[in-house]
């Protein structure tokens, strides 16, 4: 058993499941948006805003946003523990990643609920 305190779920299996689950959610979200754009050839701002004004779409987008953050954290954490051998550099890289993801999430929620 190798101990680790900075990965998402304290267990390799948890991270692995989260990575796959969030990938499915992101694929569904991407396909839905793509389908919406294709199905609306004369897409105007009002229609786009109307889509995001609905509560279910806000929820769907929020889940996708949280999925991106979890997915990216597992991936970036793995990259950092593979390639960055100096602890200080690795920790700094992880802090920067966590900072960016936190900002993206809060900013995304702010945008979403302002629609």
């Amino acid at each position: 058993m190798v101990a680790s305190v900075t990965n998402l779920g304290r267990s390799g299996l948890y991270d692995w499941v989260i990575q796959r689950l969030t990938a499915v959610i992101l694929a569904l979200y991407t396909l839905f948006l793509l389908g919406f754009v294709i199905a609306s050839p004369d897409l105007q701002f009002a229609q786009w805003q109307g889509l995001f004004a609905q509560t279910w779409m806000k929820m769907f987008t929020l889940v996708a946003l949280m999925s991106i953050c979890a997915h990216a954290w597992v991936g970036m954490w793995t990259i950092s523990t593979d390639y960055l051998k100096a602890t200080a550099v690795r920790f700094a890289f992880q802090l920067v990643c966590a900072g960016f993801l936190f900002v993206y999430l809060v900013w995304g929620i702010d945008i979403l609920w302002s629609v």
């Binding site: 058993m1 190798v2 101990a3 680790s4 990965n7 267990s11 390799g12 299996l13 991270d15 692995w16 793995t78 523990t81 593979d82």
Partner: peptide
Amino acid sequence: LAELSDPFSVFR
């Protein structure tokens, strides 16, 4: 299995 469930042993 408990010994292998961490993020490194198997999941790398």
